[in-house]
Computed example of a mutant assay.
Amino acid sequence: MPSEPDEYAELVLDTVERIPPGRVLAYGDIAELVGQGGPRQVGRVMSLFGGGVPWWRVVRADGGPPSGHEVRALEEYRVEGTPLRPDGRRVDMRRARWWPDEEPGGPSE
């Protein structure tokens, strides 16, 4: 197991840090944004190095919170006002998904 994130992991973590409160990205969305890997690779990065970033803002494609961390993630969603599905257990991806081009002032902010 690597002790330090490699270049790919740093790209993933930097992307996660940019997700605003109340918004989310799916694992596959992050892979698309960084231009390499896929959902599983992003998941591996998050499992190894994601503790220092807002990990709860990275969800499964169906809006489900990270496996094994559902209770804590749902608490964070409520605090941040993240839109949830009517069942209250998944994020409403249509309303909560974020893309960097939505950032005020562009990607450098």
Rank of each mutant, 00 (worst) to 15 (best):
L74I: 06
P104L: 14
L48P: 00
E109P: 00
D101P: 04
Y8K: 14
D14H: 08
P5C: 01
G105N: 06
W98H: 11
P83H: 08
P54M: 03
G22K: 09
R85Q: 13
S47V: 02
R23W: 07
D29G: 14
E70T: 15
E76S: 09
V53R: 00
A26C: 05
Y77G: 09
V16S: 06
L84T: 08
V34N: 10
L48Y: 02
A61E: 13
G105P: 04
G52W: 05
G64F: 00
E32C: 00
Q36A: 14
E75W: 03
D92S: 12
V16R: 08
A61H: 10
Y77L: 06
V16I: 14
P66S: 11
A61L: 09
S3L: 14
V12K: 04
G64L: 04
G63V: 01
G52P: 01
E10T: 11
G88W: 03
R94N: 02
T15W: 00
E4G: 00
V42W: 03
R57Q: 12
R89P: 01
L13N: 06
I30S: 08
G52Y: 04
G106A: 10
S108G: 01
R72M: 12
E76P: 00
G35N: 10
G37V: 07
E4S: 07
G88V: 09
L84A: 03
P39G: 14
G35P: 11
G22R: 07
M46I: 12
G52T: 10
G52N: 15
G105E: 13
G68W: 01
E103P: 01
Y77S: 06
R78Y: 02
L33D: 06
S108V: 09
L13A: 06
Q36G: 04
G105C: 02
R89L: 14
V12E: 10
V58T: 10
W98F: 09
G35H: 13
L13H: 04
R89Q: 15
W56Y: 15
W55A: 09
H69M: 11
P54Y: 01
P65F: 02
R90W: 02
V45N: 02
A31M: 05
W98E: 14
L33N: 02
D92C: 06
G51E: 13
Y8E: 15
W99K: 10
F49Y: 14
M93S: 10
I30V: 14
E7F: 02
F49L: 08
W99V: 11
M1G: 14
A61P: 00
E109A: 07
V45F: 04
G22Y: 13
V53Q: 01
S67R: 13
G43M: 05
T82P: 08
G37T: 12
G35K: 08
V34Q: 10
R57Y: 12
V45I: 08
P104D: 13
V34R: 07
A31E: 05
E109V: 14
A96G: 03
I30L: 05
G37L: 03
P54F: 05
Y77P: 04
V42R: 01
L48W: 08
Y77R: 04
V59S: 06
G88K: 04
E103F: 00
E70I: 05
A31C: 07
T15S: 08
S3Y: 04
E70D: 08
Q36V: 01
S108P: 00
P86L: 05
G63E: 05
V16H: 02
P5N: 03
G88C: 07
D14F: 01
R60K: 13
A31N: 02
L33F: 01
A96E: 11
Q41Y: 01
R95D: 15
Y8Q: 13
G35Q: 11
P2M: 08
